Lab assay of single mutants.
Amino acid sequence: ATNIVGKVKWYNSTKNAGFIEQDNGGKDVFVHKSAVDAAGLHSLEEGQDVIFDLEEKQGKAYAVNLRIK
């Protein structure tokens, strides 16, 4: 899926990971530091509006192509 709108639920820069809550009510999506880095960002803030694509690896959904809304 592409161009999904959501809000950062939480992001821990020590653990280099967090979750994004989908505005469409879907399951929360894992976001890794690699996606944050690829977006040219240093970190994510709780409640921040984002747009992202979903990629599945080994049955788990990940946020990729992250951008700030």
Rank of each mutant, 00 (worst) to 15 (best):
N24P: 07
Q22D: 05
F52C: 01
G47T: 03
V31E: 00
N16W: 10
K27C: 10
Y62W: 12
L44S: 01
F19D: 01
G26P: 05
Q58E: 13
A35P: 01
G25K: 08
K15M: 14
F52T: 01
D37P: 01
E56D: 08
L41C: 06
I51C: 08
A35S: 09
T2M: 12
A35W: 04
A39M: 07
G59L: 04
Y62M: 09
L54K: 07
F19W: 14
V50H: 00
I20V: 05
I68H: 05
E56C: 14
E45R: 14
L44G: 01
K60V: 09
N24H: 10
G18Y: 07
D37Y: 14
N65W: 02
N12D: 12
D28I: 11
N24T: 09
L41V: 07
E46D: 09
G18N: 01
G26N: 09
A39H: 02
K57V: 11
K57S: 11
N65F: 03
V50T: 02
D53P: 00
A35N: 04
S34C: 11
G26M: 09
V36A: 03
I4W: 06
F19I: 12
G26K: 10
A39S: 10
N24W: 09
V8L: 04
G40P: 02
K9S: 03
V5F: 13
V8T: 02
N12A: 07
F19K: 07
G18H: 02
L66I: 12
V5K: 15
K60A: 07
V64G: 03
A35V: 09
H42A: 12
G59F: 05
G47C: 07
A63C: 03
G40A: 05
F19P: 00
N65C: 05
D37M: 14
K60N: 08
L54N: 01
A39T: 05
T2W: 12
K9H: 05
V36K: 02
G26Y: 08
A39L: 07
Q22P: 15
E46N: 12
T14W: 13
V8A: 01
G6E: 01
A61Q: 14
N65H: 08
A17M: 15
E46A: 15
D49V: 15
T2L: 13
K15V: 11
V50S: 00
G6A: 03
K69E: 09
D53N: 05
K33H: 08
E21S: 15
I68A: 07
F52N: 00
R67E: 03
Q58L: 12
K69W: 11
V29M: 02
I4T: 04
V29E: 00
S13D: 09
D37A: 13
A1H: 13
G6W: 02
Q48D: 09
S43L: 10
L44Y: 01
T2A: 09
K27I: 10
K69N: 11
D53H: 03
V8S: 00
E21K: 15
G47S: 05
V31M: 05
E45H: 15
E21C: 14
N24D: 09
I20L: 10
N12W: 08
G40T: 04
I51A: 04
V8G: 00
A61F: 15
R67K: 08
L44F: 05
Q22C: 13
K15G: 06
I4L: 15
I68W: 06
N3I: 03
F30S: 03
E21V: 13
V5A: 13
H42Y: 12
K60D: 05
E46Q: 15
D23I: 15
S13M: 11
T2P: 05
D49L: 15
E46P: 15
K33Q: 10
D23E: 14
A17H: 15
F30K: 04
D28M: 13
K60L: 10
Q48V: 10
A1K: 14
Q58G: 14
D37F: 14
N16S: 11
W10M: 05
N16M: 13
K60G: 06
N16A: 12
Y62A: 06
K27P: 15
K15H: 10
N3F: 06
K57G: 08
K15F: 13
A1C: 12
V5T: 15
V36H: 01
T14G: 11
L41H: 06
F19C: 11
K9I: 06
A61T: 14
E56F: 15
A39F: 03
E56Q: 11
Q22A: 09
G40W: 05
G25I: 06
V36C: 03
F19T: 05
N65S: 04
L66P: 00
V50Y: 04
N24F: 09
A17Q: 14
N3C: 10
T14L: 13
D53Q: 04
V31N: 00
G6S: 01
G25E: 06
V31P: 00
E55L: 13
V5L: 13
D23Q: 15
L66K: 00
S34I: 08
F52W: 01
K7H: 09
L66R: 00
I51D: 02
A1Q: 13
N12E: 06
